Deep mutational scan, measured.
Amino acid sequence: RRPMNAFMVWAKDERKRLAQQNPDLHNAELSKMLGKSWKALTLAEKRPFVEEAERLRVQHMQDHPNYK
Results as ranks from 00 to 15, higher is better:
residue 40 A to V: 08
residue 15 R to T: 09
residue 30 L to G: 01
residue 41 L to G: 00
residue 43 L to R: 11
residue 15 R to L: 05
residue 12 K to H: 07
residue 41 L to F: 05
residue 7 F to Q: 05
residue 28 A to R: 11
residue 33 M to H: 06
residue 2 R to T: 12
residue 20 Q to R: 12
residue 65 P to H: 12
residue 40 A to P: 01
residue 35 G to N: 11
residue 48 P to W: 05
residue 24 D to C: 13
residue 6 A to W: 01
residue 22 N to C: 07
residue 64 H to W: 09
residue 27 N to W: 09
residue 8 M to T: 14
residue 32 K to D: 15
residue 16 K to V: 05
residue 5 N to A: 05
residue 10 W to E: 04
residue 15 R to C: 10
residue 30 L to C: 02
residue 39 K to Q: 07
residue 21 Q to R: 10
residue 64 H to N: 13
residue 18 L to A: 03
residue 41 L to I: 03
residue 12 K to P: 00
residue 47 R to Q: 12
residue 27 N to R: 08
residue 24 D to V: 05
residue 16 K to Y: 07
residue 49 F to A: 02
residue 46 K to L: 00
residue 30 L to R: 03
residue 3 P to S: 12
residue 35 G to D: 15
residue 64 H to E: 13
residue 4 M to W: 05
residue 47 R to S: 06
residue 15 R to Q: 12
residue 4 M to C: 00
residue 60 H to Q: 14
residue 30 L to K: 04
residue 61 M to E: 15
residue 66 N to R: 13
residue 17 R to P: 00
residue 12 K to G: 10
residue 66 N to Y: 06
residue 44 A to H: 10
residue 45 E to P: 00
residue 35 G to M: 12
residue 50 V to K: 13
residue 31 S to F: 02
residue 55 R to S: 05
residue 15 R to M: 08
residue 52 E to R: 04
residue 35 G to F: 06
residue 62 Q to Y: 12
residue 35 G to K: 15
residue 50 V to M: 09
residue 6 A to R: 01
residue 47 R to W: 04
residue 19 A to F: 07
residue 64 H to T: 14
residue 51 E to S: 15
residue 29 E to W: 00
residue 13 D to N: 08
residue 36 K to V: 10
residue 12 K to T: 10
residue 66 N to F: 06
residue 65 P to M: 09
residue 67 Y to R: 13
residue 29 E to F: 00
residue 10 W to V: 02
residue 42 T to C: 03
residue 19 A to K: 07
residue 20 Q to I: 12
residue 3 P to V: 13
residue 62 Q to H: 15
residue 67 Y to D: 15
residue 3 P to K: 15
residue 60 H to V: 12
residue 29 E to D: 15
residue 38 W to N: 02
residue 59 Q to A: 14
residue 13 D to H: 08
residue 44 A to V: 11
residue 3 P to T: 13
residue 62 Q to G: 11
residue 25 L to A: 13
residue 59 Q to S: 12
residue 68 K to C: 06
residue 17 R to H: 06
residue 52 E to Q: 07
residue 60 H to W: 12
residue 63 D to A: 10
residue 7 F to Y: 12
residue 23 P to W: 00
residue 1 R to V: 12
residue 4 M to D: 12
residue 18 L to R: 02
residue 42 T to P: 14
residue 4 M to A: 01
residue 22 N to R: 11
residue 26 H to V: 03
residue 34 L to P: 02
residue 50 V to Q: 12
residue 62 Q to E: 13
residue 55 R to I: 04
residue 53 A to Y: 06
residue 38 W to P: 02
residue 47 R to P: 01
residue 43 L to A: 15
residue 60 H to G: 14
residue 9 V to N: 05
residue 15 R to A: 08
residue 26 H to S: 15
residue 66 N to D: 14
residue 22 N to H: 15
residue 46 K to I: 01
residue 54 E to H: 04
residue 62 Q to V: 15
residue 42 T to D: 01
residue 33 M to V: 09
residue 59 Q to E: 06
residue 9 V to S: 04
residue 28 A to P: 10
residue 14 E to V: 01
residue 49 F to H: 07
residue 38 W to K: 03
residue 49 F to K: 00
residue 31 S to G: 14
residue 50 V to Y: 15
residue 44 A to E: 13
residue 31 S to A: 06
residue 53 A to M: 00
residue 37 S to Q: 14
residue 68 K to S: 07
residue 32 K to G: 09
residue 14 E to A: 08
